[in-house]
């Protein structure tokens, strides 16, 4: 069972995607862009959960990460944007 297959390559690439987009979400000043990056993080992590044979966790991650948190982030951005605008 110790054979390295194409799938290990896939795992590595997906981990790379997680790291890149997590850094992007932390670094970006534009809040919409950061929201998109956070969505990509949850997408890639959901696939990794599938690879770890945990479909229920993957489904939850998909529901929370892609659906709920994106919408909540958008609502939060809208509520706070005006304050930031006055600040500048």
């Amino acid at each position: 069972m110790n054979i390295v297959t194409w799938l290990n390559l896939v795992d590595l690439l997906v981990c790379l995607v997680v790291i890149i987009s997590a850094i992007g979400a932390a670094v970006h000043r534009n809040l919409l862009a950061a929201t998109v990056f956070a969505g990509v993080v949850s997408l890639a992590i959901s696939f990794l959960f599938l690879r770890l044979a945990a479909p229920d966790v993957a489904m939850t991650e998909a529901a929370i990460g892609a659906g709920l948190s994106t919408v909540i982030f958008l609502i939060a951005v809208r509520r706070t944007e005006e304050v930031e605008g006055k600040d500048q």
Binding site: M59, A62, A66, G67, T70
Partner: peptide, 9 residues
């Protein structure tokens, strides 16, 4: 499920 929720997002 992922497809539906990402479409919503």
């Amino acid at each position: 499920v992922y497809g539906i929720l990402s479409f919503l997002g």
